[in-house]
Each structure stands twice: as C-alpha cells, then as structure tokens.
Amino acid sequence: MNGWLLPVMLATPVLLLLALGIVAFVLRYQRRLLRQQEQLRQVRDASQQQALEAALLAQEEERRRIAADLHDGVGTTLAIVKLHLSTLGQPDLTQEATALLDQAISEVRRISRNLLPAALQKFGLPFALDALARTVPADGPTQVLIEQRGQPRRLDPKRELIVYRVVQELLGNGLRHAHADSISVSIDFGPDYLSLQYLDNGVGFDPAAGDTQPAPGSRTGLGLTNLRSRVAVLRGTLRHESAPGAGSRIWISFPIPYLPADQAPTLVSAL
C-alpha cells in the first residue's frame, strides 16, 4: 500500500468533521440569533404595550381630574351664583340669568359625566352601557341598540373603563360619520372573554384608505387607530369589514378575567 494513503485516509475524515462542525455551528448560531431576535421583539412589544397603557391611563387620569374640577369647582360655583341670584328677590330681573345658569350647570354636568362616567364607577360596565344607550335620543335619525349577552359581570375597573371607552368610541364614530339608520352594538360576556360586535348600515369606509388624507366629506377608518390602541392595551383582537356604501362591521374580542362576585367593586352608597 502506498505510504501516503494512511495519512490521507486519517486526515480526510478529520477535515470532513471540521467542515461538518462549521455547518452545525452556523445552524446552531443562526437558531440562537433568531431566538434572541424573537426575545428582543417580545421585549419591544411589551414595552410598547406598557407605554400605550401608561398613555391611556394618564389620559383617563387627566379626564378624571378635569371632570372632578368641573363638577366640584365650576359646577359648585355656578350653583352658588344661582343661589345668590335667588336671594336677590327679583325674579323678573334674574329669570333669564337663572335659566342661563341652569343651562351652564347641566352642561358642566354633561361634560363631567362624559369625561368620567359616574355610572361606570358606581355600578359597573353593564349598567354604564345601558346608560350610554339611553343617552342617544330614541326619536333621532339613528336607532341605536346596545345589547348585552351572556352573564354581565364586573371586571377590574381599569378594564371596565377601557371596554367602556371602546364602546363609546364605536358609538361616537358611528353617530358622527356613518350616517346610518341603525347602529347595533352587542356585547357578549363569555366565560373568559368579552366580545363586541358593532354593526351599522351607513356609508361605510374604505379600509385601505386609513393612512391617506381623506377627501372632504368622505369617511375613513381613522377612528380604528384609536380603537386598536385601546384594544391592544387589553391584548384583544380587532377585525373589521367595510366598503363605501356597504355599512361597517367590527368585531373585537378581549381575553378578560372576570372578578369573582366577592371581589367586585362595592357600590358607592352615596348616589
């Protein structure tokens, strides 16, 4: 046998093993890099989620503060002014001023209620949603139906507020822009989820035109951006279906842990 054969026979497998080692290293290293990238993406998503949540909570806190200031400050001052007017004992002269003051007081109450729905804080989401439905005049151009299915239950107050805002936004957008004859919102309190279905027979919108400058008088899906932000805070999903002239349908689902009956926020006694 040739004297060179043995070294070649021995060294070649070693070289092949080295080559295989390089390939295996590349495969493993690539997997590790992909895993790290995925972890980084998850951390980024989580921090975005936290920032979004913080922004929305700050917004709600600011609303709460303004609502309290309006109700306790401006509202009380107006009430005192009205009291002073009544003590003048000249109803003929103060009648118009008193009427204007009444109008201002009710306006302050309305704004305050919109900023922070007292019904939500006191009685919870199911009651607040009913109250929201009652705020739309029954003899208006749009018939609004808010329907609750399943077993209406209390949630964590922060979640209740977000869900309420979502319904409020859906309804507000629909009333302002859809020009619909009817709007229906159904809320399904599932075993471990809460789903919303919005349906209108209005002008609809082009879902693809969300990021473009809207033409005057046209409707875009820009309201969806706010909805998405709120839905994202509760890690929910949003799906929509619409076309110009074909109405709109929006489905939202939240994975929601309901509060046990004994942990439900207690009703405020002073109504």
């Binding site: 070289l15 092949l16 080559a19 390089i22």
Partner: peptide, 25 residues
C-alpha cells in the same frame, strides 16, 4: 464546504498515488 474539505488532501497527494501505479491505493 464538505466536498472541497474532503478532497483537498487527496489532491495534495494524488500525484504520489498516480506515480506509484498502485491500483488498490
């Protein structure tokens, strides 16, 4: 990578094998 790392040594010594006229090797 596998082909060229597996054959490079063989090509380094191939002339020795060819000149030896050893069919089996």
């Amino acid at each position: 990578v596998l082909y060229f790392s597996g054959t490079v040594l063989m090509y380094v010594f191939i002339n020795h094998f060819l000149t030896a006229k050893d069919y089996a090797s």
